[in-house]
Amino acid sequence: MSHDALSRSLTARGVQQAKWPAIWLVLLMACVWGFPYADGLLRIIEPDSSQVVYQRASLATLLVQHMLVVSAAAVITVVGGVLAAIVVTREWGRNFLPLVSQVASLGQTFPPVAVLALAVPALGFGTLPIIVALVLYGTLPIVRNTLGGLQDVDKEVKSASVAMGMTSWQTLRQVELPLAAPVILAGIRTSITINISTAAIGATVGASNLGDPIIAGIVNGNMAYIVQGALTIALLALTVDSLFERLQERLRSRLYTA
């Protein structure tokens, strides 16, 4: 397939893919703004309860708080994970490579609930412990993929860039990172999507987010509350995931057409 045809087919697929983030986003917004008026609908699930619409806080506020927690953790994991992976693949940091890749894979062995519980005595109740738990849980995919992406860059391409007179910093920025970008992005996507649903357990230690309606539902035996929290989180995860898919698609088409 010629470059032209390839890029055309990629854009054609891109247009087809483009609708998914929009669809999920519309559904998410419908959930957030629609649930307060969906009394009748929710009553089908939970006919016996006096109250079926979660009213302690608006879903929109909870959604924003949920996204803030996940983004805070994401910023830390992405910056930390990518930096760590870059450091250990340089000549002077190579000593740390075995330990870092081992520890990164160990991170996902720690159950988030246990980490959350252990972080509470040190950090107190609230948002901080859940961020720590998410950071620990979300680091592995990013470190693993960044390491893989950087190590897969062809040795000859790197030698060529050195031969062209690029400094090691230039090689990293203009050759290695762009070539590894799709793989790194895939890692970030996995990490953030997992963390969106994991963040809900933060509600058990007083971090207020979309986990709140779920916990309230479990405590009061109210299925309608749980559905509101769960559906909103699932739709948020799907929206973000499909956005990342779009981003990957674009990155790939740019790499191929460049």
């Binding site: 999507t193 649903s197 994991t198 963040a199 479990i218 299925m223 769960a230």
Partner: peptide, 12 residues
């Protein structure tokens, strides 16, 4: 994509 605590709750 459904959070684990919600899945437990939804089984109730």
């Amino acid at each position: 994509t459904i959070p684990s605590i919600a899945l437990f709750g939804l089984m109730l």
